[in-house]
Design a protein around this nucleic acid. Structure first.
Length: 273
DNA sequence: TCTTTATGGTGAG
DNA sequence: TCACCCTAAAGAT
């Protein structure tokens, strides 16, 4: 569940199981965190938040469990007393009278004090959350045009968690496609309409991915590709992971290049240089 | 069935 | 830039 929208859905799911109730038991796999088990056990879970790709499990008394799934971390919610059938490694668990929330495979877990979250090296660098309802298009346009970002390649800006927390490699490819922007373009190369389109696509794609569980295709394209018998990936993305496949919009073969240190996919016709 | 790759991020060189 | 932490699915054979 790697990018912001998937993490937020996981936080929703986990929160539904454990927020607002006392944790009857809390456990950690890492030795250096075991001292927190008796401290957190018995405390009420206040909320489970997502901030970009980070998850914050907030306990009463101002203690917060920070976790980051990176590529492989995965949350399971089970009825109390049962565990998922998996060979993965259990790293963090919160149990209450009826449910268990279980985090497997994650290697980034820590216990922090709520008032010192910004002392955490990763959290301190995060920009506003991509899915934050109060993030308006005009705020995003101003951010794009600010000195920090206007001169950098969009391919790099759209991986930078300080620009928007929760963006990742599939979201950047899909957003730049829908904005009609070449990955190596810079904000300062765009006209006002281009910046407007980019800001709009950013929020739209983020929200759609959240609503659908990671699909960025709009309903109409999704229905059309489905009728043609598209595969899983064809039904999910416009360009991501589709090297050599025909563009869903114009039929041109999708290309893959390196930009911002990772592979990015784009349509050379829909996203001209 | 084996090998490669990946939606992430850190830390060392 | 690379090794590393984790694991599963896709691709190659």
């Amino acid at each position: 569940m790697p990018e912001g929208p998937e993490i937020r859905r996981a936080a929703d799911r986990v929160g539904k199981a454990i927020a607002g109730r006392p944790a009857t038991a809390v456990s950690f796999a890492f030795e250096h965190l075991k001292r927190w088990e008796p401290v957190l056990s018995g405390r009420r879970v206040e909320r489970v938040d997502a901030w970009g790709k980070a998850m914050l499990t907030r306990f009463e008394g101002g203690l917060v469990v920070y976790s980051h799934n990176q590529l492989y971390g995965r949350w399971y919610v089970r009825n109390a007393g049962s565990l998922p059938d998996t060979n993965r490694q259990l790293r963090f668990a919160v149990h209450n009278a009826s449910k268990s929330a279980l985090l497997y495979s994650a290697s980034e877990i820590d216990v922090l004090e709520a008032e010192h979250l910004d002392a955490h090296p990763f959290l301190a660098k995060l920009g506003p959350d991509l899915l934050d309802r109060s993030l308006a298009e005009k705020d995003l346009r101003a951010r794009l045009r600010s000195d920090a970002y206007r001169g950098r390649q969009l391919a790099a800006v759209y991986l930078d968690q300080g620009f928007l927390a929760g963006l990742g490699n599939y979201l950047r490819a899909e957003i730049l496609f829908l904005a009609g922007v070449h990955p190596k373009a810079r904000v300062k190369d765009l006209d006002a309409a281009g910046v407007r389109k980019l800001a709009k696509a950013t929020l739209e794609v983020g929200q759609r991915a959240y609503a659908t569980g990671g699909r960025t295709l709009d309903e109409r394209t999704f229905a059309r590709v489905k009728k043609q018998g598209g595969t899983r990936r064809e039904l999910r993305f416009f360009v991501y992971g589709r090297k050599g496949r025909p563009c869903h919009r114009c039929g041109t073969r999708i290309r893959r290049i390196d930009a911002g240190g990772r592979h990015i996919f784009f349509c050379p016709t829909c996203q001209p240089r």
